[in-house]
Simulated assay, not measured.
Amino acid sequence: MDRRNLFRAAVVGTGSVAFGFTMTRPSFADPAQTGPGPYGALQPADANGVMLPQGFTSRVVARSSQTVPGTSYTWHGAPDGGACFADGNGWIYVSNAELSTGGGAGALRFDASANVVDAYRILNGTRTNCAGGATPWNTWLSCEEVDRGYVYETDPFGETAASQRPAMGRFKHEAAACDPDLEVIYLTEDVSDGAFYRFVPTTWGNLASGQLQVLTETGGTLAWANVPDPDGSPTATRNQVANTKRFNGGEGCHYANGVCFFTTKGDNRVWAYDTVANTIALAYDDNLTSNPPLTGVDNITGSPASGDLFVAEDGGNLEICIITPDDVVAPFLRLSGHGSSEITGPALNPAGNRLYFSSQRGTSGSTSGGMTFEVTGPFRSA
Rank of each mutant, 00 (worst) to 15 (best):
R63P: 13
E189P: 12
C321H: 04
G88H: 04
W140A: 07
Y273F: 13
A29K: 03
P292C: 00
F199W: 03
N353D: 15
T376I: 15
T264L: 05
C253A: 07
D274R: 02
V11E: 00
P293A: 05
F19G: 04
C253V: 08
N239L: 04
G339V: 12
S142A: 15
R59K: 09
I185K: 08
N115F: 06
S209M: 02
P378T: 09
G81W: 06
R127C: 11
G106A: 05
P53M: 02
Q43D: 09
A167D: 03
A134C: 08
Y152W: 14
S341M: 10
M1H: 06
G258W: 00
F7R: 08
V191E: 07
G249R: 06
F261R: 03
T22Y: 09
V146T: 12
Y120K: 03
G103T: 12
D147L: 13
S359T: 02
A47N: 01
V151R: 07
A41C: 00
G220I: 00
Q164V: 06
N299L: 03
G377T: 01
F56K: 09
A256R: 11
Q213K: 04
A330H: 08
V329E: 11
S209D: 10
T376D: 15
N317S: 14
R3G: 01
T160N: 05
R238I: 13
G205D: 13
T126P: 09
T154S: 07
D181W: 03
N5S: 15
Y150H: 08
R109V: 13
S303F: 11
G35V: 02
R198W: 10
T202V: 10
D87V: 10
G37D: 04
T24A: 15
N96E: 07
